[in-house]
C-alpha cells in the first residue's frame, strides 16, 4: 500500500475536516409502516435503517425470561453496502457487533417492565463508510424511543481515532483503514454511563484521556440530532396522523 497522507500541514483531514469536526448527519424517525418503531440515519456516506418490533412474544419460547424482556439487536450489512459485494448472512464481525450493540441498548431500556417478552431491534446497513456500529446503535436507540419503549435516556455515541499523531473525531473510511487508532464509544447522556467501548490501534494513556473527553463532547452533538428527529416526528404526527417520512428525501 502506498503512503496515504491523512492530514496536511494546516491540520486539515483527508476530507477537509478539522480534527474535531463531524461529518454531516441527518436523521428521520418513523420511516417504516410495519415496525413498532423505526429510524433512518445518514451519517457521512453511511446509510442506516433501524426497526424495532416488540415487546412481543418470544420466539423460540425457551429463551423467554420470567424477570425481564429479551432485548436482541441484529446488525446486518446489505450485500451492496460495501465496495466488494458481501455475501448475505451474518459473519463473525456482524455477530460481534450485534452482541455489543444489544448489550449497550439493554443498559438503557427498562427491560424489567416487560417480562417474558422480546424486543427485537434490527439494524440494516444500506451503505457503509466507517462508523456503522455507532450509526446503527444511534438509529436503533431512536427507533426504540419511536416504539414507545421506556428507557433511561437515548443511547448516543461517537468514534474517535488518531492520524499523524493527532486525535480526530468521527473517522471516515480512509482514516479508519490507515489511521493509528480507532475507539468507538456509546453513552447514556442523562446518567453518564458508558455502555459500549472498544478500541484498536495505539494510543498513550494521556491520549486516551483526551480521546474519551473529545468523543463524549462529539456524542452530545449526535444526541441533539436524535432528540430533534424524534421531536420532528411527533410534531408532524399531530398534523398528519399517518405520516411516514420518505428515506429518499433525507
Amino acid at each position: 500500500m502506498e503512503e496515504i497522507k491523512l492530514m496536511d500541514e494546516e491540520g486539515r483531514r483527508i476530507d477537509g475536516r478539522r480534527p474535531d469536526e463531524l461529518r454531516p448527519i441527518k436523521m428521520k424517525v418513523g420511516v417504516l409502516t410495519r415496525a413498532d418503531g423505526s429510524a433512518y440515519l445518514q451519517w457521512g456516506k453511511n446509510k442506516v435503517l433501524a426497526a424495532v418490533y416488540g415487546p412481543r412474544e418470544v420466539f423460540p419460547k425457551h429463551l423467554q425470561d420470567p424477570e425481564r424482556a429479551l432485548l436482541r439487536a441484529r446488525y446486518n450489512m446489505a450485500s451492496f453496502s460495501v465496495e466488494e459485494r458481501k455475501r448475505p448472512g451474518p459473519d463473525r464481525r456482524s455477530i460481534e457487533l450485534s452482541k455489543v450493540i444489544s448489550e449497550a441498548l439493554r443498559a438503557a431500556v427498562f427491560v424489567e417492565q416487560f417480562p417474558k417478552t422480546s424486543i427485537d431491534v434490527f439494524i440494516e446497513i444500506l451503505q457503509a463508510d466507517a462508523g456503522t456500529r455507532i450509526a446503527g446503535l444511534v438509529a436503533a436507540s431512536a427507533a426504540l424511543a419511536d416504539a414507545g419503549i421506556p428507557m433511561k435516556d437515548l443511547v448516543t455515541g461517537m468514534t474517535v481515532g488518531k492520524v499523524e499523531d493527532t486525535l480526530i473525531l468521527d473517522l471516515c473510511k480512509e482514516e479508519d483503514n490507515y489511521g493509528q487508532a480507532d475507539l468507538p464509544i456509546a453513552i447514556i447522556p442523562r446518567t453518564g454511563e458508558i455502555v459500549l467501548l472498544q478500541m484498536d490501534g495505539h494510543m498513550t494513556q494521556e491520549e486516551i484521556d483526551r480521546a474519551l473527553d473529545m468523543a463524549i463532547r462529539g456524542a452530545m452533538k449526535v444526541y441533539e440530532i436524535q432528540k430533534r428527529a424524534l421531536l420532528e416526528r411527533y410534531e408532524r404526527l399531530v398534523r398528519e396522523k399517518e405520516y411516514i417520512a420518505d428515506i429518499s428525501e433525507v
Partner: peptide
Amino acid sequence: VEKAEGSALVSMGRTTVLVGVK
C-alpha cells in the same frame, strides 16, 4: 447507494424495496 455499481429505491404505495447491483 452510491457504492453499488447501480441501485434503485422503489416505493409502490408504502411497499419499499432497495436493489443494489454489483
